[in-house]
Nucleic acid binder design. Structure first.
Lengths: 194, 194
DNA sequence: GTCTATAATTCGATAGAC
DNA sequence: GTCTATCGAATTATAGAC
């Protein structure tokens, strides 16, 4: 029935996904201001006006492109040492296979919606895992989760954005070996490293 | 002798410093793109054209405003535990008393000259201190210094830029107690925390 | 559903008067 | 040494044809 005369009917949903994909790449590579709608549309092979028509504004486009799921595995049963190693390794892999985290961290310096999404990932994904692993709740669990986030995001910042030479050159296993004891320390709590 | 007829002679050097001060604040608060020359000039109480005349371009203005000295104290003689505590405390104080680090970290996401300045601070100030404290040289010292930087910058990122609630709420002494064992761990090297 | 054309801002930078 | 006026470029966003 719904078959009137629709002239150039290409798949609208596929176009949306192509735009979102290009947007993530551009935001990740250039930050918010320098990632122009023109450039994003060019990468996606569509007209710039289409981008506005689909997403309303540049701000809304970013919000749509920067939704993120850490996809944390269930580590509830593991000893803290193994869980910490898995956590660092998972974070490195997840970062490198998906542009979204890079886009979020880059744009967070200038755009409040990126900050809000990062805070949501922290509260909804990182904090619950830390609660489960540490057996703590409330302020204590929140502080431990915050410290874990400070080290993981600091690692991403220095390795992938600043490209600090020694960190950019280290391989995954070396990083896991060096950093995971720190994560374990934060999960255990207290002031000493045991 | 040099006393021709100079009409509105206010102090040019003071004007330069006023502009630099306003620039640091704006870059720190808004990032590079949103910190417009017009806004900086407005804060400094001067004409926008003067800013260009004095510094040549926005890019050169940023370079001039974002020069940074960590002013690290000499910790060479201290035991690692005390040196680590002093390091974390000094970093927190230095961050909060000077807008320059905030400007550098914010702008680093989009501007290569900010990254270059941060890398220079790392190579010229952090790495030498880590060498002296750890007694290491070459790649080993560089990696340890890089890991120290990852935790310190991650702390700044999550506390001052993202304002992650638990981290933003913690006071200096609590942060020193929680984080300094990590710095000590990185300074000592190895994979375990002793 | 897609594209052309353009409106409406905003900003960096310049020229020149005072 | 400082300010007025403005240029030229780039951008987001809209209106409307096809």
């Amino acid at each position: 029935m719904t078959r009137k005369t629709e002239p150039p009917r290409r798949d609208a949903d596929a176009t949306r996904h192509t735009i979102l994909r290009a947007a993530r790449q551009r935001f990740a590579a250039d930050g918010y201001a320098r990632a122009t709608i023109r450039a994003i549309a060019g990468d996606a092979g569509v007209d710039p006006a289409l981008v506005i028509r689909y997403f309303g504004s540049k701000e809304l486009l970013f919000a749509a492109a920067a939704r993120f799921d850490l996809r944390l595995p269930d580590l509830a049963g593991l000893p803290l040492r193994e869980a910490s190693r898995a956590l660092v390794r998972h974070f490195l892999v997840r970062w490198e296979e998906d542009d979204t985290l890079m886009a979020l961290l880059r744009v967070a310096s200038t755009n409040d919606s990126a900050v809000a999404e990062l805070l949501a990932v922290f509260s909804g994904q990182v904090k619950p895992l830390v609660q489960a692993l540490s057996g703590q709740e409330g302020r204590e669990a929140a502080e431990r989760a915050g410290l874990v986030a400070s080290q993981m995001l600091g690692l991403a910042l220095t390795r992938y954005i600043l490209r600090l030479p020694p960190l950019a050159a280290m391989d995954h296993e070396t990083l896991v070996a060096r950093v995971s004891p720190v994560i374990e320390h934060y999960l255990r709590g207290g002031d000493r490293i045991a």
